[in-house]
Each structure stands twice: as structure tokens, then as C-alpha cells.
């Protein structure tokens, strides 16, 4: 493949909302009034605690086996006994928060928040929902600098306003594991044995196994016995560290585990798990010394009979 082919492959086909044309048309025909951007609907969700993300993950005190292991095994047990709920759609709703990777204005950091949703019908149709929740200063110090700057609500390249929710039929394969696209049926057919599950992802090399296994636990419709197997396999991985009890940004308590991600160097993912329900509550990826962290809070993940709708 030549350079131009590589460039095309890099960009790929964007997933475009079929309603975009109508929205843009509407804006053009509604005449070009200039509207002052306001930081209005800083939705309650986003109002929570952007700051907590930073403090939450700072102090590790790794404990490799012991209580961490038994918590994962307990989660495996509750996953198994959970039974399976059915519904017409698999639906995941996540709140994503990330620090904008560049200093803004006079030199402060802002945190962007948004909702991301996935709906998958049993017949394989896929929808993605999205809604921007706006931005806010990262820390009180940032807030001070931001106010001194006149509290702007938009910057070149970073619109600060909350947006409208969108729902896009994306098509394509809804899930992936170990780099392979996965359908609902393929996830259902995964081995319920920890060893075999691990063997599936092991060829990826160290540093990737924990991420692939834990990926089965949040946002994929893995059946109870597969979830249990994933928890048991995780309990045997030495690279998974138990950090103790933590509270996520939504105020939910759980056990925090972290493992390194290979790329970029120094990055790790910290998951907070509710061992009583075996649910993964949140994920934080960060790297020491880099502010470009990302927090993902799983607000809902499960089967539902509701129809796909914009968040």
C-alpha cells in the first residue's frame, strides 16, 4: 500500500449522522444570528467532581494477592449467580470525562464531559448515542485562572457549550475483543473456562491480557459464566494490582484494581468494581505527569426493551 492508501486507512470512513444535513440546513435557513455562547446547562452529571479523578488514582499501595484476589473471586461468584436478564436491546450508557490536552487561555486546564451510548439489537443493528455536556475548570486553581480570563465558554477548537443528544445508526460490528470484531452471538459463545479464555487473548503478549479480559466485564453482553471466568482469570494475573476501596465520581463504592497499558508508555487503567454485583463501575486511564486523563463512568449496562433514543 502506498502513502496515500495509508492516509486513507488512517482516516477511515467517518460515522455520519443521517440527520446532520437537516440540522445544518435548518441552521442556514434560520439565518445567521450570532448567539452568545453561554455555559448554561452544565448538566448536573457533569457538575459532580472532576477533581476527584486526579486524587482518586494518585497513591498506589500495590497488593498483589491477598484481599485483591479474594475480591475478584467473590465478583466471579456473584457474576455466576447473577442469572441472565433478557431484553430486545443491549444498551450501555457511559459518562466520559477527559482533560483537554492543551492549556487554554492564560494557561488553565478544562475538563470536557459527554455521554456515550451504545444500543445493539438482537438482530445485530447498532446505534451510537452521544451528547456533549460542556466543559468546566479542572481544579479550583484552574477555575480561578479561568475566571480571571473572563470565564470564556468557547475556545478555538473547543466548543464549551453542552450539545444536543444525537443517535446514529452506525452499522458494523458492535464489540471487539483482542482486536477481533465480535457480535452478540460470538460473545455468548466465549469459553466459560478461565484458562481457555486467557489462552484466547494471550497471544497478544503481556500487558494486553488484563485489558482484554476486563473488557468483557464492562459494556459487553457477556453471559454470567463468561463474566465469572474473566474475573477468575484476572485474579490469577500478577500484573493486576489491588489499590483498596475507592469511590468513583458518582459516589459509588467499590474495589479499585489497576494494570498497565502499553501505549502510550506509563499509562494505566484503574477499574472500580462492585464485587457484590460484579459490575464494573468506572475506568480511569492516566499516566503520571500527563494531564490527559480520561474517566469513564458506566451509568447503565444491560438488556432493555426500551427503544434506542438520543441521550
Amino acid at each position: 500500500m502506498d502513502e496515500l492508501g495509508r492516509v486513507r486507512e488512517l482516516y477511515g470512513e467517518p460515522s455520519l449522522d443521517p440527520l446532520a444535513r437537516a440540522r445544518v440546513r435548518e441552521r442556514l435557513t434560520a439565518a445567521p444570528r450570532r448567539r452568545r455562547r453561554r455555559l448554561t446547562g452544565m448538566v448536573a452529571l457533569a457538575g459532580a467532581v472532576a477533581v476527584a479523578a486526579a486524587t482518586l488514582i494518585a497513591l498506589p499501595d500495590p497488593e498483589i494477592s491477598g484481599p485483591g484476589r479474594s475480591i475478584l473471586l467473590a465478583a466471579a461468584h456473584s457474576a455466576e449467580s447473577g442469572g441472565e436478564v433478557s431484553g430486545a436491546y443491549w444498551r450501555v450508557r457511559k459518562l466520559i470525562r477527559r482533560t483537554y490536552p492543551e492549556r487554554l487561555g492564560s494557561g488553565y486546564w478544562m475538563v470536557e464531559s459527554r455521554l456515550a451510548e451504545l444500543w445493539v439489537a438482537r438482530d445485530g443493528r447498532v446505534w451510537a448515542g452521544a451528547r456533549s455536556l460542556g466543559v468546566r475548570p479542572r481544579t479550583p486553581a484552574d477555575e480561578l485562572a479561568w475566571r480571571k480570563d473572563g470565564a470564556p465558554t468557547a475556545w478555538p477548537g473547543l466548543p464549551g457549550d453542552p450539545g444536543k443528544g444525537t443517535l446514529t445508526a452506525t452499522g458494523g460490528v458492535p464489540f471487539s475483543m483482542a482486536g477481533q470484531g465480535m457480535t452478540i452471538d460470538q460473545i455468548r459463545d466465549l469459553p466459560a473456562d478461565p484458562g481457555r479464555l486467557r489462552a484466547l487473548v494471550e497471544p497478544l503478549g503481556e500487558g494486553l491480557v488484563a485489558d482484554a479480559l476486563s473488557g468483557l466485564l464492562w459494556s459487553k453482553p457477556s453471559p454470567p459464566e463468561v463474566r465469572a471466568a474473566a474475573y477468575r482469570a484476572l485474579a490469577d494475573l500478577p500484573e493486576v494490582r489491588y489499590l483498596g476501596e475507592r469511590t468513583d465520581e458518582q459516589g459509588r463504592r467499590g474495589a479499585a484494581f489497576s494494570f498497565a497499558l502499553p501505549d502510550p508508555p506509563g499509562t494505566r487503567r484503574t477499574l472500580i468494581i462492585d464485587s457484590a454485583t460484579s459490575r464494573v463501575l468506572s475506568s480511569v486511564t492516566d499516566a503520571p505527569g500527563i494531564l490527559n486523563d480520561q474517566t469513564e463512568l458506566v451509568l447503565e449496562a444491560g438488556w432493555t426493551d426500551r427503544k434506542p433514543a438520543a441521550p
Binding site: 445493539v120 494486553l208 501505549d263
Partner: peptide, 14 residues
């Protein structure tokens, strides 16, 4: 950010 594709693994291999 699309749920269902969170792992870095997906990225690195595919």
C-alpha cells in the same frame, strides 16, 4: 469512545 470497544487491545492489534 464508543462503548464496546474500550480495550486498548482492539486498537493495538486491529
Amino acid at each position: 469512545d464508543l462503548p464496546g470497544h474500550e480495550e486498548r487491545v482492539a486498537v493495538r492489534v486491529s
